[in-house]
């Protein structure tokens, strides 16, 4: 009986059900806007839409050679930095590495003199904390007993992933005396949800893929090189290297070099497609 039973196993392959992804959605809504969201304490996500009219209006004031950039404002310390935009891209993940930080982004043009012309600016967003909060501790008088309770949570987290180590490092450096650990990585350890998975067994197994493009080259030392129209600083030996984190899409990287007498141009086209 049992033998017959096993013979029947997986005799017929399940067929692929009919695939219907539903109607296509608008690429644009005809409204200029930029929105900022927090992914976690270290990353922000922003998406935007700029109407051709709004872009033109700003371009009129901006001189030639201006670059389209995202300006990321750290409102907690008053600093900002710029990210060059790749044409056609409509959203970006921004690595800020700043838990409990307040941010805002603007999209606009940066001219060769460093003047920024804003097209639109986003909502403000506060990144989540990644550790026990510092400050105001006097309000929560932490006694020896309470410290022990918190440490017990630490013990409960005795085994864990690399992510935990990351948090531990941060914590140990910040509040070494408490040794309290984040459960951030433990948040269900992804397991809560894995149990819901259907069909295949995927316990603890996962795959995450990112793509980082390294564009590198070499020319005569002292020559001037432009990538996507933007000047690149050469190393003393004439080499250069740029890194890009790419979302899905097609990207063109024109590379131009000149020493004042001769010029060369090579264009690299890259396509990333996640399946």
């Amino acid at each position: 009986m049992a033998e017959n039973y096993y013979e029947n196993l997986f005799r017929k392959e399940p067929q692929k059900p009919y695939v219907d992804l539903g109607p296509a959605l608008p690429q644009n809504y005809g409204k200029t806007r930029i929105v900022l969201m927090a992914v976690d304490p270290w990353w922000l996500h922003t998406y935007w839409e700029v109407t051709p009219e709004d872009r033109e209006n700003v371009l009129k004031i901006v001189g030639d050679g201006a670059r389209e950039v995202l300006r990321v404002y750290n409102l907690s310390d008053g600093t900002h930095f710029d990210i060059d935009l790749i044409p056609g891209v409509k959203n970006w993940y921004i690595n800020v590495n700043k838990p409990d930080g307040k941010f805002k982004v603007s999209i606009g043009f940066l001219d060769s003199n460093g003047n920024f012309y804003e097209i639109a600016s986003s909502n403000e967003m506060i990144t989540p904390p990644a550790s026990v909060r510092e400050g105001k501790v006097e309000e929560a008088v932490v006694t020896e007993s309470e410290r022990l309770i918190l440490a017990s949570i630490d013990r409960a987290l005795a085994d864990s992933s690399a992510f935990r180590e990351l948090i531990r490092e941060q914590l140990v450096s910040k509040i070494a005396q408490w040794q309290v650990l984040s459960s951030g990585h433990l948040a269900s350890e992804g397991l809560a949800r894995e149990y819901r998975e259907r069909g295949e067994k995927k316990r603890g197994f996962f795959l995450e893929v990112g793509t980082r493009l390294i564009l590198h080259g070499r020319t005569v030392p002292g020559a001037s090189v432009k990538v996507m129209g933007k000047p690149v600083t050469l190393m003393p030996d004439g080499t250069f290297k740029l890194e890009f984190d790419l979302p899905d899409g097609e990207f063109v990287f024109p590379v131009e070099a000149t020493d004042g007498f001769e010029a060369e141009k090579i264009t690299i086209k890259v396509e990333r497609e996640s399946k």
Binding site: L25, P26, Y29, K31, V35, M37, A38, V39, D40, P41, W43, H45, Y47, E49, N91, I126, T127, P128, P129, R133, F163, S182, S183, G184, H185, L186, A187, S188, E189, G190, A192, R193, P247, D248, S274
Partner: peptide, 28 residues
Amino acid sequence: AFSSWGYKGYCEVWLNGTNDWIYPHLHM
């Protein structure tokens, strides 16, 4: 604190390269 019970404890499960296309539409 800003948090969730998803993998890694924040928003990454619901906001990443596979599903970030949803939000411009939801917000609009």
